[in-house]
């Protein structure tokens, strides 16, 4: 039986889709089978970020409405052995899907795959409720900004109400700005949200370039962001994570955190 993990944030544009895409690719590289679900009905994104947009025939709403089987709606990523995408519909409304539909869909996918990663839409309404309905665990993505952290806190409260275990990824950290005192550090965000950290992903221009190309950064090489996504994937799989080797500030906070006791840097 696989694990269903929802990637959520409250605020849009903080890196949920980027995280879903790269964690999916990294987990698949490590040998586990993964299905990515784009739960953003009506505003699909994950297909283009993954570079699979030209291969869509059926989508999530087709599968739920019974117009095709769930397995038939999955798109196999040919770059990796065990990665699939279940795209969202671009034309339907969010209320074409109910939380019960999602639970049924995810349970079926968990029977055939090790991981089901759900890319949650922004907001806390119907789309959010659908996306978290079938999740066993949650990853909250926040950037080190007041508005993102505030929205993340709201989502953390809603996930806690449903007893969904939740961990944190801090995305788009600029070590340079943190050092100058012009950005909250990873440790600050952990302290404020009181969540366990899965990883801190730097602001990395490679992410922008790989998104342009529809190629997960993780498959493109060893950029800083790609390496951190791979480390996060290993943590999710319960694998040993090699200690940070980069020198300088970013490496130091990674070590100092040790993923338990956080010293504000």
């Amino acid at each position: 039986m696989g694990r269903a993990i929802v990637i959520t944030s409250g605020k849009g544009g903080v890196g949920k889709t980027t995280t879903t895409c790269n964690l999916g690719a990294a987990i698949a590289q490590l040998g586990a089978s993964v299905v990515l679900i784009d739960a953003d009905i009506g505003l699909r994104n994950l297909d283009v970020v993954m570079g699979l947009e030209n291969r869509i025939v059926y989508h999530l709403v087709d599968a739920i409405a019974g117009r095709c089987t769930i397995q038939k709606a999955l798109i196999k990523d040919r770059r990796l052995d065990n990665l699939w995408l279940l795209p969202a519909s671009q034309t339907d409304d969010k209320d074409a899907v109910s939380p019960e539909d999602m639970v049924g869909l995810i349970n079926e996918l968990k029977a055939t795959h090790d991981f089901v990663l759900i890319d949650c839409p922004a907001g806390i309404e119907q789309g959010f409720r659908n996306a978290i309905a079938g999740a066993d665990e949650a990853i909250v993505v926040a950037t080190p900004e007041v508005s993102s952290i505030r929205d993340a806190d709201r989502v953390v409260g809603l996930l806690a109400q449903r007893d969904i275990p939740t961990r944190l990824i801090v995305n788009r950290i600029s070590p340079h700005l943190v050092k100058k005192g012009d950005m909250l550090s990873q440790a600050d965000v952990i302290e404020i949200l009181a969540l366990e950290l899965l990883g801190g992903v730097p602001l990395d221009e490679h992410v922008v370039a790989s998104t342009n190309k529809g190629m997960p950064a993780v498959l493109e090489g060893k950029s800083l962001a790609a390496r951190e996504f791979t480390r996060i994937a290993k943590r999710l799989l319960g694998l040993e994570v090699e200690p940070e080797r980069e020198v300088g500030f970013f490496g130091r906070i990674g070590r100092a955190l040790g993923f338990s006791s956080a010293n504000p840097a």
């Binding site: 900004e145 943190v178 100058k180 005192g181 012009d182 909250l184 600050d188 404020i192």
Partner: peptide, 8 residues
């Protein structure tokens, strides 16, 4: 105060 402290 740094803007980081203000944000906190």
């Amino acid at each position: 105060q740094s803007s980081r402290e203000v944000a906190k």
